[in-house]
Simulated scan of single mutants.
Amino acid sequence: MKLSLTLNSWPLSRQQQQQQLQQLSQLSVDRVYLGETVCEKRDRPALRTLLEYAETASHSGKQVVLSTLNLVNGPRELKLVENVCRQSEFLVEASDLTAVQLMAEQKRPFWASANLNLYNLDSLRWMQSLGAIGFTPPIDISDDNAVRLIAESRESLIAPLSAEMIGFGWPVLAVSARCATARIQGRNKQHCDKICQQRRVPLASTLEGQNLLHINGPQSHGARPVDRLDAVHYWQQQGVEWMRLVPGPSLDADWLSHLSEDLAAAAPFRRHEIPAPTHKTAIG
């Protein structure tokens, strides 16, 4: 079992993003997902800059995967996805069918994102025929169905697909063409002034006052994180090769180190409080 880490879910400043990228080589994970997945308008490093950091991280033994946008609904989004898919140095995580088509046209392998909603063997077989070499099951699939799907993929496909489960974090529940963060501030997506990068991630509650959703621009995330860390050895027995961490804007690098050490020793994971996405701080 190996640990993977997503660093591209939340609206961070350029300085915070730079801080994260500079620490890539030191993080205690085997794979890192980079690239803008949420909104084309957000401040982000240029692709050439991202590739430079990715190359440095790969030289330190990390596998780097470049993720695409979760939704393409205009020419600017399409251009960004095309640029990511056309680079040939690193594996691409295809987050929607636009990216899948671009990778298939080039006959290049890709990772099938949880956002592709692959629930059954037929969809996995089709995705493999287009070039998928691994997949992350959808966030809303039950553990029992995920186990069944992974087992079927290992038994029935021409070549087994590498499987990854979301082990901890606030993964995406829904994606919209509209930006809820801008709407809350009385703006629209076209004239948002990147308000998401100036404020904390909004938290939506029920009428009873219970925390329900983190509002992340055009995306919604659950207020409670997925947490499968106590079952990581069980998932390893089920054939899962990767356990993915999808943290908030803040993640303690020491915590990552402890997770890696405990995983290697087959020991129970040491825990401490992980800041929720409403906190806007970078990796420390």
Score class of each variant (00 low, 15 high):
residue 261 E to A: 15
residue 126 W to F: 11
residue 52 E to A: 11
residue 193 D to Q: 14
residue 187 R to E: 03
residue 30 D to K: 04
residue 12 L to D: 02
residue 173 L to G: 10
residue 196 C to L: 04
residue 177 A to S: 13
residue 220 S to G: 15
residue 268 P to C: 09
residue 113 S to W: 07
residue 61 G to W: 09
residue 274 I to S: 04
residue 156 S to I: 14
residue 95 S to G: 14
residue 248 G to C: 08
residue 139 I to C: 14
residue 160 P to E: 03
residue 218 P to M: 08
residue 235 W to V: 02
residue 96 D to W: 01
residue 75 P to C: 13
residue 73 N to G: 15
residue 193 D to R: 15
residue 177 A to W: 09
residue 80 L to K: 05
residue 68 T to E: 02
residue 112 A to P: 00
residue 103 M to I: 06
residue 186 G to N: 06
residue 101 Q to N: 11
residue 201 V to S: 12
residue 282 A to V: 08
residue 224 R to W: 12
residue 63 Q to N: 14
residue 94 A to F: 01
residue 197 Q to C: 04
residue 112 A to E: 00
residue 284 G to V: 15
residue 185 Q to A: 12
residue 3 L to A: 01
residue 8 N to R: 00
residue 95 S to R: 10
residue 175 V to W: 11
residue 199 R to T: 15
residue 84 V to F: 03
residue 124 L to F: 03
residue 62 K to V: 05
residue 185 Q to L: 12
residue 142 S to I: 02
residue 149 L to Q: 04
residue 229 L to T: 08
residue 200 R to M: 07
residue 128 Q to K: 03
residue 57 A to G: 09
residue 47 L to F: 15
residue 280 K to T: 09
residue 28 S to Y: 03
residue 127 M to A: 06
residue 109 P to N: 08
residue 110 F to M: 07
residue 215 I to E: 07
residue 109 P to A: 03
residue 54 A to Q: 10
residue 29 V to I: 02
residue 198 Q to F: 08
residue 102 L to G: 08
residue 274 I to D: 01
residue 2 K to T: 13
residue 183 R to T: 09
residue 194 K to A: 11
residue 259 L to A: 05
residue 124 L to R: 02
residue 30 D to E: 14
residue 168 F to A: 00
residue 155 E to V: 06
residue 265 A to D: 12
residue 135 F to S: 00
residue 37 T to E: 05
residue 271 R to I: 03
residue 119 Y to I: 05
residue 17 Q to Y: 02
residue 83 N to R: 10
residue 184 I to G: 01
residue 71 L to Y: 04
residue 55 E to Y: 13
residue 95 S to A: 15
residue 79 K to F: 08
residue 183 R to E: 11
residue 133 I to G: 06
residue 75 P to K: 09
residue 159 A to Q: 15
residue 197 Q to I: 00
residue 251 L to K: 04
residue 35 G to T: 07
residue 235 W to P: 00
residue 169 G to Y: 04
residue 100 V to D: 00
residue 273 E to A: 12
residue 144 D to Y: 12
residue 263 L to S: 06
residue 91 L to E: 05
residue 155 E to L: 11
residue 227 D to E: 07
residue 111 W to I: 00
residue 192 C to R: 01
residue 265 A to W: 12
residue 130 L to N: 06
residue 189 K to C: 09
residue 247 P to R: 06
residue 199 R to Q: 09
residue 270 R to C: 05
residue 237 Q to S: 06
residue 118 L to N: 00
residue 210 Q to H: 09
residue 51 L to G: 09
residue 281 T to H: 13
residue 193 D to W: 14
residue 26 Q to D: 13
residue 121 L to W: 14
residue 238 Q to S: 11
residue 205 S to Q: 09
residue 210 Q to S: 13
residue 262 D to S: 14
residue 217 G to M: 03
residue 163 A to P: 04
residue 116 L to V: 04
residue 199 R to M: 11
residue 131 G to T: 07
residue 152 E to R: 08
residue 239 G to Q: 02
residue 16 Q to I: 04
residue 86 R to I: 09
residue 198 Q to S: 08
residue 47 L to Y: 13
residue 158 I to V: 15
residue 145 N to W: 08
residue 144 D to Q: 13
residue 96 D to Q: 04
residue 244 R to S: 10
residue 239 G to N: 05
residue 281 T to L: 14
residue 232 V to F: 10
residue 134 G to T: 00
residue 214 H to N: 08
residue 74 G to Y: 07
residue 52 E to F: 12
residue 242 W to V: 06
residue 193 D to Y: 10
